[in-house]
Write a protein that binds this DNA or RNA. Structure first.
Lengths: 339, 339
DNA sequence: ATGAAAGCGCTAACAT
DNA sequence: ATGTTAGCGCTTTCAT
């Protein structure tokens, strides 16, 4: 029975078990030199008092807090939210606690990093965060393991886990060509970010090797409203297939095509990216690239663990293979997405 | 210039500024008794060395970490993701650091709370978490301020910030009656949770005072696929207006109505809850209750601050007024949502 | 197998 | 206005 309000410290457990504080610590840590009998006594006492070690004190002593900093940008993006969900779950399962900061700007990111360092986090995981090279350097300088998810970087010693945008672009090209498309467009995101450009390059390179090329390429920010405007421009070029860097862009394109009142059969095929829940709903029924977030977040957490365990090892760069989920938006008849 | 790798402690700053550690601490804390001259010297030294106070050590000393535990359930729900985003931002702006755990089950929540307590968090914020009364009690017993967002509770001394589901339900009833609806249905969520029931009650009570009643009331879990099935059952009862406890349910209902191939004019009006981004897109164009998450999260963070500052004060219960965002899904002609 | 004692980095009495 | 000192709760040599 936990004593109300009063914090239970290891010394209370020690007194109840008639033993020293050191022994309590060792018994709870599973030290092999402690006898069965005393260990049981300690465990019983700890349970009886509802003892929970003070992780802040332990962190100070051990120079290791078990806290991992997580930096994210925009949780309104379903993809980020899902990634955070998985990261938090997996970190927690691995006995790490995620301290989360959200930031949209480089200054925000700097501030977040500074605070994380102050909290002596064991590692930092960045999820599509607006990290400048400066920030990466300061993390490295602070000797904190840093894992970048879906953001490539120079040659600093940081862990990188990223989807293979090139391969995805190629898969999409193959798929669309097989479906009979002949005139292609690309709708990129976020002012042609590195990620978006990579997807585009994989797409065009494969198109070229099929003997085609890209008729139009425009970009928009990842917001539905803005994308609607750019989508209209894309449609003016009358492509019969459009690859979008993101599902939201694809939804905007589909809606723009419907609004244009083109006859059903003349609307372009559309492929999105992220395979968000909405892509599977009948109103959009969107073919989309799945980044395999499950694998991506697992590798990310594993990388964080590895770097914490061996801080001086050379950080790995891992590539996660994406896969294509085919739906009605690229069916040859191209009509199943209407209902 | 930050020294590479080596941690800078307050004693280094003290030595550089030719002053004692206490003075460094006081100068940085803005203690009024420190002279201008020394303060400047200390600040300069701190900046030069890139000194960042160790918040873990401070936490141990002060018995206050500046960490707030945040417990969430399902971030795949856009509403929860958005709420978390706002909470994280607002806590961060208020100099608190959010330690986030996700859990779906009561055991998961217990585990999360246990770990948060071990980290000596200053307060706990629960966001639609599966908290049993047990958990609430253990939080109260641990003397940690607890703020529940959108979850009502018994008479323990916990902060509660909740939307006014009764008022929302009434608003929706007024709106639908004004639009000419005569036969009403309710689609509830999550096995008729308290939240869902409250919305329903507000709705039916007001219907009654208008001289109507509820023709059908069914519930589904908050997943699109399940909701589609239940939606079909609702439609069989041929209501001309349906109030859904959640936007996802509403989307499922709209899609089910379209799939049923009923003539446009005969489809029921639909109202959702949460006013998610998707509700504003033309494909659904859904009238929806906005819970005012901005206000709700602000009040929540303020409540956490207040309870940290005055732990013995009586916790407040605050109600946030929702508002209705009217869109095409309840237009009288009921046709604008088709394009 | 167990205990005594030191120390992680910080702040706040308590001096002066 | 500034310095000295003790101590937050824990783990871990070093001793026994």
């Amino acid at each position: 029975m936990q004593k109300d309000g009063k914090k239970v410290r290891s010394i209370e457990v020690a007194e109840l078990a008639q033993i020293s504080r050191s022994t309590v610590s060792r018994a709870l840590a599973g030290d092999a030199r402690i006898s069965e009998a005393t260990r049981d006594r300690v465990l019983a006492a700890a349970r009886q008092l509802g003892y929970r070690p003070n992780l802040i004190a332990r962190g100070l002593k051990n120079q290791s807090t078990g806290i991992v900093g997580v930096v994210v940008t925009d949780l309104e993006n379903a993809y980020h939210a899902h990634a955070l969900q998985l990261l938090v779950e997996k970190l927690g399962a691995g006995r790490l606690a995620p301290l989360v900061f959200a930031c949209n700007t480089v200054e925000g990111a700097e501030n977040a990093i500074a605070r994380l360092m102050s909290y002596q986090v064991d590692a930092v995981v960045a999820l599509a965060a607006p990290f400048s090279d400066e920030i990466v350097k300061s993390c490295v300088a602070g000797e904190k393991p840093l894992v970048l998810m879906n953001r490539h970087d120079g040659d600093e010693n940081v862990g990188v886990v990223a989807g293979d945008g090139l391969a995805a672009g190629a898969m999409v090209a193959d798929h669309l060509v097989a479906r009979g498309a002949r005139r292609f467009a690309f709708l990129g995101g976020e002012d042609n970010s590195f990620i978006s450009k990579e997807r585009e390059r994989g797409f065009t390179d494969r198109l070229v090797s099929h003997g085609f090329d890209l008729a139009v390429s425009l970009s928009s920010r990842y917001s539905y409203a803005e994308a609607r405007v750019v989508a209209a421009d894309i449609l003016r070029a009358a492509p019969d297939a459009v690859f979008c860097a993101n599902d939201t862009l694809a939804f905007a394109l589909l809606d723009a095509a419907r609004a244009a009142d083109a006859p059903e059969g003349e609307r372009p095929m559309v492929v999105g990216y992220d395979n968000s829940a909405l892509a599977g709903w009948p109103s959009y029924d969107l073919t989309s690239v799945d980044q395999n977030l499950e694998a991506m977040t697992s590798r990310t957490v594993e990388a964080a663990f590895a770097m914490i365990a061996a801080p001086d090892a050379v950080a790995e760069r891992q590539t996660i293979a994406p896969f294509l989920v085919e739906r009605g938006s690229t069916s040859s008849r191209n009509s199943s997405r209407t209902r």
